[in-house]
Amino acid sequence: MGRDRGVGSGGRRVAGSGDKIFGRREGEGKEVLFGKLRLKAPAKINLYLEVGHRRSDGYHRVRTVLQAVEWFDLVELEVRPGATRILLEVEGEAPPGKDNICHRAAALFLEASGIEAEVRIRLTKRIPVAAGLGGGSSDAAAVLRGLAHLTGSGLGGGDLFRLASRLGSDVPFFLLGGTAVGEGRGEEVTPAVQAPPLPVVLANPGKGLSTAEVYRRFDLLPPGKPPQGGPRPLLESLATGEVAGVAPRLYNALQEAACALLPEISDLLEAGRRAGALGVLVSGSGPTVFMLPAGPVEAEAIASRMREVAPVVKATRFCSHGVVLQEHDP
């Protein structure tokens, strides 16, 4: 796997295709850099998800513990001088053109920064869509961060977080990554004590679930009672790195609704338990199920068992970052 790094200041050199030096273009009192770079956009899981009543704006108030994991989409960006135009190429399963959140992220960034430029995006999808893993949100965060580096727009971190929250509830988290607590509708993210790189196995039934449909089903169910102490006991256990302490504190208020809409999820949950996972839970609105094993050896054994019942299985681990620049192909 290639090395990951940030971007320096001054006469900046950028990781990416050909490791190109930025060019420069001046116009209307603003100096605009242009060039190429490549970013890795990780998936996430929700280790804890508490859902409140629907707010007046139609969203539900949530409290969640988000964890980035090493399953990456690749986002390649190129900025060229010229009239504003956004070109998107997608490899894998994802919406094309303006229906793709990457296109919307680029358009929003250019509007907010006042920059005129041609933006070319190549998205390589590896994270399943509509899976509860935040893949599209991570891709959008990669576009925002990458364009901020490429254009020298002057938009700061706070500006990027505000743009991210306009794109989706999970997008701000991926600018931060690692282990974090999300509140509000999920867009208010606060770093937590970072969990170690614990092994995790993800299993997806090969079908997607609409987040809106899961929340509508949730609203029809009797209100559940979140664990005593909220996410605090889970966060304390994560800090120790002891899976045996983390596993019993996993919680997802949407799990029942997701299982009701897609019964295959219940089958995956049961298969994960039978395979020996210490903890098994639906991630977000589903349908992906994640399993916490005792260690790396157990993770491979669980993944092997899960491949007998699920078309998409990934054995990986927690990671401590969000979207990052990458120098070489993985």
Rank of each mutant, 00 (worst) to 15 (best):
Q67A: 03
V79R: 00
A299P: 12
Q255R: 03
G230Y: 13
G11Q: 13
G178Y: 00
G8H: 15
V79L: 06
L147H: 05
V201L: 15
V129F: 13
I115V: 09
G92R: 04
I21M: 14
S56R: 15
E264H: 07
L37Q: 05
V323M: 04
L235E: 07
K314V: 11
A41I: 10
G152A: 06
L49N: 01
G156F: 01
L235M: 13
R3N: 14
E183V: 12
I302H: 05
T84S: 15
N204L: 09
L88Y: 00
P172D: 01
A271V: 06
P248T: 08
P296C: 15
F22A: 07
L176R: 00
G286K: 00
T211V: 10
D99Y: 11
V119H: 03
R126S: 09
Q194G: 03
L261H: 10
S283M: 06
A303F: 14
A107P: 03
E327Q: 12
L175G: 00
L37W: 02
K314A: 11
P231I: 08
G52R: 11
L278I: 09
M306D: 06
V51Q: 05
L33Y: 07
E298R: 10
L209K: 08
A112W: 12
R61I: 13
M306L: 15
P227L: 07
G177D: 00
A180S: 02
G154E: 08
Q67G: 03
E213F: 14
G35C: 09
T64P: 04
A310K: 10
P128D: 06
S283F: 01
P227R: 06
R104I: 13
G208D: 12
P248A: 10
R216M: 13
L163T: 02
E26Y: 11
L198K: 05
P197K: 10
A106V: 08
L325Y: 01
E116G: 07
A299D: 15
V282R: 00
G156L: 02
H60W: 09
P227I: 05
R145V: 01
A258Y: 02
A212I: 15
R166E: 12
N204K: 10
H321E: 02
G241D: 02
K36Q: 11
G97T: 05
L133W: 06
S266Q: 09
G182V: 04
R5L: 12
A117M: 06
G286Q: 02
S169K: 03
